[in-house]
Design a binder for these strands. Structure first.
Length: 377
DNA sequence: TCTGGGGTCCTAGGACCC
DNA sequence: TCTGGGGTCCTAGGACCC
């Protein structure tokens, strides 16, 4: 058998760019929605209510980060750290608009317009050919950064590397407004990854990092020196995947995932104080309000749902989710409301106080015609 | 310090149908 | 009457991300 290595895809060097907006929600508030907040510490999240509010910070501006505030921190703690910070609830529609605007710019720089949206504030582009047009990888990244700053008024950081996995890690090296380039030489890629913690890999979260640590594995350099059988006890079927990622091997093609398609819509509510188990009527009211809001969003977007999921979190923070599907999709808020209450009544633990309730609809499809399906429920 | 709200993807078992 | 396999849907839960 003759294999011509020069013709295999793995031998072709690529340039992938990962673009990540800096402190996205906070930046939109500062640079687009409330210019008077530029230069000030800004936290997007729930009202801290003088340190008594429940909830966490969703995004913190770099000025707030200097005070020790970070995303995920309880707003009560953020308030104690920096009471003079601007705490804003956030306008989610405006984040979607800003997202669409910067994605549009990325299309102009991507080979064949191929952009892969990873979330509202980050995306990958295939730039293997386009880097030649814009004067090399660095100048291309700089040009993207400048265009987004000029046209969308937002700062971003960019990672450039031979594949998506390494590009994403590179982006995080220098922020905000950073550009980090990792060349195509496999030796350079290995050296770049070697000192980093295992959690640098997209997909290694708290649980997996803790399990690896039990086996004495904390850095990617350690994994680079291991074989797949040696990884097996800690990673099982994920061993091959981690083996490759730790070496910067990622041959996934960059596939454009098109405009955003919503898979579910949900609404949660954490109570100011835990609700006693017997306050059923109050919870019903809350559920009904949430279902009404979800119904409005479904109708606005011409969507119908097939499955309802009710989430219940108790005062001990244990959380359960129970779902139910209906035979024919609907966008009717009254039906949604009735289903949600039914699930809640049947599934909840009547001994425990309730911290949070949530409703999610999934199995979404476009409404084409309205059906009356009361008889199905 | 006391832990949100919006999501996505994966797995696995059971039901059901062919 | 017994048997197996494949496909799909439903449900629950886990992990992860921003």
């Amino acid at each position: 058998m003759i294999i011509d290595l020069h013709l295999t895809g793995s031998q072709m060097s690529r340039w992938i760019m990962h673009v990540d907006m800096d402190a996205f929600f906070a930046s939109v508030e500062q640079y687009r929605n409330h210019p008077e907040l530029v230069g000030r510490p800004v936290c997007v999240g729930h009202d801290p209510k003088g340190g008594k509010g429940r909830g966490v910070v969703r995004a913190a501006s770099y000025e707030a980060r200097e005070k020790g505030i970070h995303a995920g921190m309880p707003v009560s703690k953020a308030y104690r750290l920096c009471p003079e910070a601007a705490f804003v609830e956030g306008e989610f529609e405006s984040y979607g608009v800003a997202s669409d605007e910067f994605m549009d710019i990325l299309h102009e720089y991507a080979d064949g317009g191929r952009v892969r949206r990873a979330s509202i504030d980050e995306a990958y582009i295939e730039a293997t050919n386009s880097v030649d047009t814009f004067g090399g990888p660095y100048n291309t990244a700089l040009s993207i950064q400048n265009s987004i700053w000029r046209e969308v008024l937002l700062p971003c950081s960019i990672g450039v590397a031979p594949n998506m996995s390494v590009a994403k890690i590179a982006t995080g090296i220098k922020k905000p407004k950073g550009i980090t380039i990792v060349g195509p030489d496999p030796v350079d890629v290995l050296k770049f990854l070697e000192p980093l913690p295992v959690s640098a890999i997209n997909g290694i979260g708290y649980k997996t990092a803790a399990r690896l640590e039990k086996f004495g594995i904390t850095t990617l350099g350690q994994i680079q020196m291991m074989t797949i059988p040696e990884l097996w006890p800690s990673m099982g079927r994920g061993s091959v995947w981690l083996y490759q990622r730790a070496r910067g091997i990622d041959e996934r093609p960059l596939v454009d995932n098109g405009p955003r398609v919503r898979k579910s819509i949900s609404k949660d509510r954490t109570f100011m104080e835990d609700v006693e188990p017997d306050a059923t009527e109050y919870i019903h009211e809350v559920l009904s309000t949430m279902c009404g809001r979800i119904g409005e969003r479904l109708q606005k977007k011409s969507l119908r749902f097939k499955t309802v999921t009710v989430k219940m979190r108790y005062s001990d923070f244990s959380t359960i989710q129970r779902s139910k599907s209906i035979p024919v999709e609907t966008d009717n808020a009254n039906i949604l409301s009735r289903l949600a209450m039914e699930i809640f009544d049947h599934q909840r633990d009547r001994e425990k106080s309730i911290r949070l309730v949530g409703v999610k609809v999934s199995g979404l499809s476009e409404s084409s015609e309205q059906l009356c399906l009361t008889e199905f429920i």
